[in-house]
Structures are given as structure tokens and as C-alpha cells.
Design a protein around this nucleic acid. Structure first.
Lengths: 208, 208, 208, 208
DNA sequence: GATGAATGAGCTTTCATTCAT
DNA sequence: CATGAATGAAAGCTCATTCAT
């Protein structure tokens, strides 16, 4: 009996195999969409192209996503959760070793540099090409606010008016690292030097 | 009817009359497109709608613009030249009365506040909705660089490393005023207060 | 002046020529849709087919109709207005020469026979194939009620309980003539004989 | 394990067990489709939805039905056999107690009222939404003719021209009860009153 | 047999652009 | 030149059906 009962044991694997296949399909669709987005931009992103590039049929795409927007939602979600991970890490780093306001600023800037260094082409497409929906804007905004709050908390016992300062610090760090690393603007010096300068500027302000 | 001198004598006035009419048509099209863009956004901007709102036919529209993109080019150009005008004015103001680096910073921030306060809905559409072409990005970039150069010049005899400082000052002033005035992010305090704070931050940095 | 001013005079014809062309296009689309509906049924009726059969592009179709349903609306409208015309004629005939309730019944049945004899294939498609919208059902219902009201009025001074009798008379006359002329049911005798019998039945009832 | 008689002895029970399961699956599919049809209408009826609601896979559905239409065939068949059952019962009732033509008429009308009162939502979907095939129309027609024949037989020794009268009586009873109970037309009085009036009208005619 | 992921033809609709008038 | 009717490629999405597991 024991050696010849493939049924009980086999049934679950079948289901999980199917689930694996389904998950793989979802994955391949998202990857295709992500690649198209970062390689060719928003205008080239349509359901037929995604399906073709993913090697599946449009029907399959709509099996897993209710509409085109939903694919973008997932891409954005993943993108933002990378940001979240960086925030969590940053918060830990701050707790572990930030003794001065300058330390907090340094970690903040470094965090944004790292964030914007990862997959910059996708980042550009997402922030310049794609027309985000209201809900998506809110999601992006929520992440921003979370970073500001954490920064304010980290500065609370170190500076005056931590909430306002956190707002400027975060918005500036985000905007400038984004500009230098994502937009391909011509900068007189290297991005690293600029980041250093940025730390200086924000450090001065934090302590003011 | 002076049938003897139809060419030389008649044509110029005719042409300029025609040119006047042509210019008026171009104008009316641009205005219609601009209004649609700022009222209803990029998605609502299509050539038929533009023509209808402008009170001309699509055929006429294509008489004056080779394609849809060309209309957008003009809108962007005008938008950017407003920036240019503000710059020119700012340069004058600086020459006239900026004795300290803080003065330059104050004028810079005030300039960007003014820039972003004018027709913010159009500004938002142009910077968030509309997918700019490479060439258009370059044009935006050129304006940025011009501002940076002028700022650097204004700071030249007042601070150290004026070029680098100008880059950070301009990018920060632009990014933050844009964020507060154009994107509707939730800010803890008023935009005016933030602008004041921004001047403080940038002033500190300029003098560092 | 009078003999050589083609402009003033010519401009209107141009516009009306265009309007004529537009109207012709609308007409050709409706005719194509109607023919498809009566020849091949609702399932074969799609916008591409309609456009092809009409000899126009889908784009033109959507120039004149906001969506597929709107085409059907027009077809139904025209169909119903034929019914309305028949009603108007019937009301006149009744006023002119119906002295007895049997006269009213005879005119009623004859009217429905005529109504259902005209373009029976379209009639069949419209009443069997096409899934009518709520609004369309209401329109059909409104025509029914108008006929009932007119019949009740015609019977008012001739029979007892004219409203109720009108309801039965109209619904019966409609249903049976429809069944015999539109649905291709096998009837033991000719439709004409059946109509005669129907008049007998309804006449008996009207006078009861 | 009786290895010597695997065929004859074992197979029959197995097959009938299988048949039982198969029948249950067919049943569950039909029920699901019927419920969807009467609850959400023809437009909501698609094979995937049916399978999901039935708790089986689409694959299984296609194991038991060659195509979507076949499911509808069964639903229609069952619907019609309810009509047949009512007819059989009616025929018995007529034999048992119909002594006059009016009795026959009364039973006929009551039968149609009962027929149309049972699951009117399904009835409506089947008669208004679903596009019946030619074959299905023929089946409906066959039932109609059977009722007419039975009615004619019941009237044979009571009235003149029983065949023709049966045609009008049946078609009228069907059409009017359908209209009042299935279509939601605005009627001046209750369906019961109308049914009574209908009996009066048909009784008059039957005896004419 | 049962499963349900995968398929893809086909549908409705949009809109930048053309061209006969 | 002006007009606006006409075009048709292309997009998003559905669903009856198939087939690998």
C-alpha cells in the first residue's frame, strides 16, 4: 500500500504545479511589461505587445490582470516596495548609528542615491512617461510621507522644527538625486560629488 | 481692378494680410490646445477636439501644423519662454540690487515661485501628463542650464565654487517650488512658509 | 455683379452638398445594418460588417453613430414610426367610417395585418433576435399603449368596459397576426382566413 | 480481487456508477446555467461562468456538452417538457370533467396561466433574450401544435370547425397570458381579472 | 475522465491624418 | 486655402474552445 499510492501524494503536486505555472505566467507578463516600459517607454506598452513579448496570448494576460492598468499597478507596487525596503533599512541604520543630524542627512541622501541607482531606466519611465492614476499618485505620496515621518522622528531629539526640516530634507534629497541619476541632465561634476555637496547643504540646514 | 500690376505690387500686401490671418489661425489653435490641456488634461487633447474648440477645421489645423506634436512644441516653447522672461527679469533684478548671496538666493526662489504660480494647471499637465519627446527634453534642459549659468555668474564674486552651488541652488529651488505648487502634495505648512524656509536653507548653503 | 457672383451663391450648395453626402452615408449605413439584420440576423451584425456592407469605413460609422446600439435605435425608431403611421391612418379610418364595434375591430385587425406584412424578415429579426434595451422596450410599449388608448376611445360610445376590451383586442390582434405572418408557424389554413376568423372572434367579444 | 471475471461482472456496476456521476455533473451544469440565465440573463451566460457556478471545470463541461448551444438545448427541452406535462395533465382534466366548450377553454387558459407563472424569469430569458436556433424554434412549434391538436380533439364533439378554433384559442391564450405574466407591460387591471376576461372572450368564440 | 491555463479570432471603439469638394 | 467627411491602423478586451498535465 505505502509504496503504490501515488494518488494521494500526487494530487497536491499537480495543483501546486499548476499554481507554479500560473505564477510563472504572471511573472513573465510583468517582466515583459517592465522591460517594454524601460526600453521603449509608455507609448509602446500595449496589451498585445506585452503578451507577445511575454510569449503568452492576450487571453492569458487577461486571465491574470483585469485590465492594462492593473499590470502597471503591480509594476509600480514592486517599485515602491523597493523604496519601502530601503526606508526600513535606513531606519535601522539610523537607530543603530546616527548620533548627529548630519548622520541622519548622510543616510538619507545615500538612501536616495541607492534608490535612484537601481534600474534607472524603469525609474525614468515610471516617473516621466507613465500617466499615473489618482490612486497611484496617492501611493507614491504615501511612501514620501512615510519617509518624511521617519526622518522627522530621527531628527526629533537633535534639531528644532524637525517636521518642517524633514519635509525639505526629504523632498530635496529625492528631487536632486532623481534629477542627477534619472533625468540625464548635464552636470558639471560627477553624481558622487554632487551627492557629497548635497549632504553638505542639507547638513547645514538641518543644524540651523 | 488694376489688372496691369498684379504681381509685385499686389502680392506683398496680400501676403502679409494672409500672414496675418494665418498667424491668427495659428494663435487660435494654440490657445484652444492650451486650454484643453490645462482644463481637461493630455488624454482629452486630440486634433479634432482642438480644431473644434479653435473654431477651425481639422484640415486647417494640418495646414499650419504638420502633426499633433508640432502643436505641443509651440505650447512648450511658449511656456519655456515665460521662464526665459522671468530669468531675464531676474538677471536684471540681481544686477540692480543683489549685493549679497542671500539676495541672489531670495530672487531665485521668488522667481521660481512666480514661475510655478502662473497657470499651474497647464504647468502640471505639461510636466506630469504630456510625454515629452527627446528634443523637448533637451529644450527644457537648455533653459535649466541657462538659469544655472546666470546664477553662477551672479554668485561669481560672492561665493566659492559658484558653478556647483548654482546647480544645487537652481535644481533645489525648481524642484521644491514645483512640488509644493504644482503637485498637490500634503505639506504641513503653507507654501509661503515653505518658500521662506527654502530661502533660509539655500542661503545658508550659498554662503558656506 | 449679378451674373458673375458665383461665390455667394455657390457656398451654400457646397454645404448642402456636404450635408447631402453625410445624410447619404447615414442612410447607407442604416440600410446595410437593416439588410444584415433581416438577412443574417443579430449575430452577424457587427460594426465592421455593417461598414463593409455599407461601403464605408468603420470610422465613418462612428462619425454618425456614437455606438453600435445607436444604429439599432434608429432602425427600431423607423420600424416603430411605420407602426405609428398605420395607427394615425387607422384612427382616421375609424373616425371616417366606423359606425359599429365590429367596424373598429375589423380596422384594427387589418391594420395589424398590414403592419406585419411589411418587411416581415426585419420584423422577425427585431422581435426575435435582437436583445432590446430597457429604453427600447419602453418605446415599443409606448406604441402599444397608444394603440390601446386610441382603440378604447373609438369604442367608448359603442361598448361596455372599453379600456379593458381594448387591451384584449389590441394584444390579441397583435399577437396572432404576428404569429401567423412573422413566425413561420404551420397554420392549417391561410393567413387571410385566419384574419377573418380573428375578426369574428374579436367582434363577438367587443359586443359582449 | 477476482481476476478471472473482470469484464462482464465488473464493468456494469462501474459503468452505471460512472453514469450516475456523469448524470450528476450534467445536472449540476444545467442547473447552474439555468440559474444564471434567469438571474442575470443571456448576456451573463458564458461557459466559464457556468462551469464556475456549477463547481466543475470548463474541461468537464466540454466533456458532457459539445458546445454552449447544447446546454441551452437541454434547458429548453426541460422547459418545454414542463409545458408537455401541463398538457398531459390538461388532457386528463378535460377528459375527466370538461363537458362544455367553455370548460375546455377555462382549462386551457388556466393551464397557460400556470405554465407562465412557473419560473417567469427563466421564461422571460428564454423567450426574449436567448436567440433560439432554427431547430429550437421547431421544437417550440411542435409543442404548440401538440396543444392545438389536443384542444381540437377536446372540442371535436362540442363545436364547429374545431381545428381552426383550437388554433386561435391556443395562440391567444398563450400570447396573452405570456404578455401579462412574462413581459412586464402595464395593464389596467390585475392579471387574474385579465385571465377571467380572456376566458370570457375565448368562451364566446368557441361556442360561436 | 478531470482540470483550468492557455489560446486567438473577433468585437467595439478611437483618433491622427488625408483628400475630394 | 478652407472644409469636414472619410479613412483605417491599432488598441483594449471577451469568451468559446482546446489541450497539456
Amino acid at each position: 500500500m505505502t509504496s503504490s499510492t501515488p494518488r494521494q501524494g500526487a494530487r497536491k503536486p499537480v495543483r501546486s504545479a499548476k499554481q507554479k505555472r500560473a505564477k510563472a505566467t504572471v511573472e513573465v507578463i510583468i517582466e515583459a511589461a517592465t522591460r517594454i516600459l524601460s526600453d521603449q517607454g509608455w507609448d509602446a506598452l500595449n496589451t498585445n505587445t506585452i503578451a507577445r513579448r511575454a510569449g503568452v496570448s492576450v487571453g492569458s494576460l487577461y486571465e491574470y490582470f483585469p485590465n492594462k492598468q492593473a499590470i502597471l499597478d503591480v509594476i509600480l507596487d514592486r517599485h515602491l516596495s523597493k523604496g519601502d525596503a530601503l526606508i526600513a533599512q535606513g531606519a535601522k541604520d539610523v537607530q543603530a548609528g546616527a548620533t548627529t543630524a548630519q548622520d541622519v542627512v548622510d543616510l538619507l541622501v545615500s538612501g536616495f542615491v541607492r534608490l535612484h541607482s537601481d534600474d534607472p531606466k524603469l525609474h525614468r519611465a515610471l516617473s516621466a512617461d507613465v500617466p499615473l492614476s489618482k490612486a497611484q499618485h496617492r501611493r507614491v505620496e504615501a511612501v514620501r510621507e512615510r519617509i518624511i515621518d521617519l526622518t522627522a522622528a530621527a531628527l526629533a531629539d537633535k534639531v528644532s522644527a524637525p517636521a518642517m526640516k524633514a519635509t525639505l530634507l526629504v523632498d530635496t534629497a529625492d528631487a536632486l538625486t532623481h534629477k542627477w541619476l534619472i533625468d540625464d541632465v548635464g552636470t558639471p561634476v560627477s553624481a558622487e560629488t554632487l551627492a557629497q555637496e548635497l549632504k553638505t547643504m542639507l547638513g547645514l540646514y538641518a543644524l540651523a
